[in-house]
């Protein structure tokens, strides 16, 4: 695999790429190599989701990605195969975010940082101005969403997850996902209308 620093996998017979379930099972057996492969497969999605956390800088996001995968390894024995591994990993990432922003002080700091970060957005071309403006307002709006609504919006609208997948990732009924998404969209639409 390209770019691997440490070739952790133990010698195995055959050149079969293990499935995600198998990798999680191997993690449960303590194999760091399996976690490395899960990271290769899913880090981009996890990083993208966590990058949508308002106010989190690049270092914060990397820390959260690291926490997510360490938790994946730690929780591997509890994985029961009822959801796809991808969805399960996202659920862990969302929980990591919940812990991260638990304190209100940190939440406020993130909101402030989000405002500062969004102010740095600049259009590359004149016709991009409106889009950048919208993205800027959206960024600020996301900082004001509750964790539940934020997660529903990021998973459904930004990551394109289905309602079933998002429900599994958030461990709520599918109807709850749509309600939260509706509330998130309403809030964000209000923000987009603000001047």
């Amino acid at each position: 695999m390209k770019g691997k620093v440490i070739s952790f996998p133990a010698p195995e017979r055959g050149a079969v790429e293990p499935g995600d379930d198998a990798l999680v099972a191997s993690c449960a057996a303590g194999r760091a190599a399996a976690l490395g492969t899960l990271f290769d497969r899913h880090h981009a999605m996890v990083h993208r989701v966590l990058s949508r956390l308002p106010g989190a800088d690049a270092g914060d996001v990397e820390d959260l990605v690291q926490q997510t995968f360490i938790e994946v390894h730690r929780s591997a024995r509890r994985f029961d195969g009822r959801s796809a591994v991808r969805t399960w990993i996202v659920s862990i990432a969302i929980n990591v975010v919940r812990h991260h922003v638990r304190s209100e002080a940190r939440r406020r700091a993130l909101e402030n940082a989000a405002v500062q970060a969004s102010a740095a957005l600049t259009p590359e071309r004149p016709d991009d101005a409106e889009r950048v403006h919208l993205a800027d307002r959206l960024w600020k709006g996301m900082a004001k969403l509750s964790q539940d609504r934020w997660a529903a919006f990021v998973l459904c609208d930004l990551e394109g997850m289905s309602g079933v997948e998002a429900a599994e990732a958030l461990d709520v009924p599918e109807g709850t996902v749509w309600r939260r998404l509706h509330e998130a969209r309403n809030k964000l639409r209000e923000t987009l209308k603000e001047e």
Partner: peptide, 29 residues
């Protein structure tokens, strides 16, 4: 709103950062 979401800026991990992060995670576990 969905279009605005798609336009939100996103910087993926650089190859360097990805490798460092991967190595760090694997080392931790």
């Amino acid at each position: 709103l969905a279009a605005a979401g798609r336009d939100m800026p996103y910087s993926p991990l650089s190859e360097d950062r990805r490798e460092i992060l991967r190595a760090s995670i694997v080392a931790r576990v």
